[in-house]
Computed example of a mutant assay.
Amino acid sequence: MSAPRRRTATATATAVAVVSVLSATLVLPMAGPAAAADCATPSTQTTAELPWSQARLDPQRVWALTKGEGVTVAVVDSGVDASVPQLAGQVLRGADVVGGTGRGDTDCVGHGTFVAGIVAARPAPGLTFAGVAPGAKVLPIRQTADGEDGTANGMADAIREAVDSGADVVNVSINSPVRSRKLDDAVKYAVRKDVLIVASAGNEERPGQQSSALSFPAAYPGVLTVAAVGRDDQPASFSRSGEYVDIAAPGVDILSLGTGGPGYRVDEGTSFAAPYVSGTAALVRARHPELTVPQVIHRLESTADHPAKTLPDPQVGWGIVNPFKAVTAVVPGEARGSAPSAPASSPPRRAAPPSANDPVATPADATTHGYLPLLLGLAALALLGTGGILVARLAARRG
């Protein structure tokens, strides 16, 4: 197991200074539920310093190979403000499954814009903050407009809308405490269509006190579930844990885009760990378009910075996502159409729901690929035996 990559003392000190300055001047979004008419204050404050989370993951290392071009990442959230300069040209019209304008490219609350910035914010002159995959397109699907998480059925409608609108990756940084048949079916629908769902693991209501409650769609089979870590690579106190956690990413003191201007905001939560993984998945799908969803998940997990623990770990899964290794590593067993093996010796924890496209063995297949060679071999031996008998009889007659 490889040890997690550490940041230098200089990068750490710089990141701390950045968050200190911004935290003193910016309003933290989503501190509590916002009323439908209580929109986030426009953000204008920026910084030229590199955020610690971006320094830690260092996605810029792979931008010479891919920036996620040709990949669409759906953000199932509160919408995305398409007018923000670093998202200009990146945000599609989207959709609104809870009413309103019918489109998703506006955002009153700011949560979805913050998420989209982590995924696909473009570099800007004089600024160092950028998304993990600045070449990817963002498909905003609004399923909440008031700062709440919405409903399980609303998430289901949003996921189906995202899949039908051409998303390659669906980021779900919202959670439902209850499952629903409709949401379950929507997740299976995405898996059948070879669309990757990345979901936040969820935040504990009382940080530091882990509960046994599950979050959905995070706990569904076939979903890549993301927990949050802090600057020290340790699990965040608020991040939920369990066997459904697959991978981790920074989720403490996170800097990203605000609404209504060019400025930044600072916040924390598993909501903002998930888009780091969604952005990395976009890089992988752009660079390796032949890979299926299970193969993309396998690649992300097997190339993560594994902690010195038994894997998978209930708090961080297979470890912290590593964009460079996820894109560039040679992963055994990735021949087109082959089934990936587990990232380590531990058995898989969850079975993915069956896909309508999965090959199913039939009796004819078994005959063709299993018994036919044996039958041909026996026939050849029989012919050789018969030939030997004939030769012996001819020799006897001649004698």
Score class of each variant (00 low, 15 high):
A3F: 00
A3G: 00
T10C: 00
V16A: 15
V18H: 11
V21C: 01
L26F: 06
A31H: 01
A31P: 02
G32T: 09
A37F: 02
A37T: 14
C39T: 12
P42L: 08
Q45H: 13
T46C: 12
T47S: 15
E49T: 06
Q54I: 13
R56E: 13
G68H: 06
G68L: 06
E69Y: 02
E69N: 10
V73T: 03
A74Y: 02
V75E: 09
V80N: 14
S83Y: 03
Q86L: 05
A88E: 13
R93P: 00
G94H: 04
V97Q: 10
V98G: 14
G99R: 13
T106A: 05
D107W: 00
C108P: 01
C108W: 12
V109G: 01
G112A: 05
V115W: 03
A116L: 08
G117H: 11
A120N: 05
A120R: 10
R122F: 07
P125G: 07
G131W: 04
K137E: 06
L139Y: 09
I141Q: 09
I141K: 04
G150C: 03
G154W: 07
A156L: 02
D157M: 13
I159W: 01
I159K: 05
E161L: 06
E161H: 08
A162C: 09
G166P: 00
A167C: 03
V172K: 01
S173C: 03
I174N: 12
N175A: 15
V178N: 06
D184A: 13
V187H: 10
V187K: 00
K188W: 05
A190I: 09
R192T: 08
I197N: 05
A199W: 07
A199D: 13
N203A: 11
R206N: 10
P207R: 07
P207W: 03
G208E: 11
Q210P: 00
Q210H: 04
P217S: 00
L224D: 07
L224Y: 09
V226L: 00
A228P: 07
A228C: 03
G230A: 14
R231I: 12
D232S: 15
P235I: 09
P235W: 14
P235L: 12
A236G: 06
T259E: 00
G261C: 05
P262Y: 08
R265N: 09
S271E: 10
A273N: 06
A273V: 08
P275Y: 13
T280M: 02
V284T: 08
H288E: 04
P289M: 03
L291Q: 15
V296L: 05
V296C: 12
L300I: 09
A304P: 05
K309N: 13
T310Y: 14
T310Q: 14
L311Y: 14
V316F: 01
V316G: 01
G317K: 12
G317T: 11
G319W: 05
T328Y: 11
V330Y: 12
A339T: 10
P340F: 02
R349W: 02
P359C: 10
A361Y: 07
T362F: 12
T362W: 11
A364H: 04
T368W: 10
T368Y: 08
G370I: 06
L374E: 15
L376W: 01
L378S: 15
G385H: 13
L390V: 11
V391L: 15
A392Q: 14
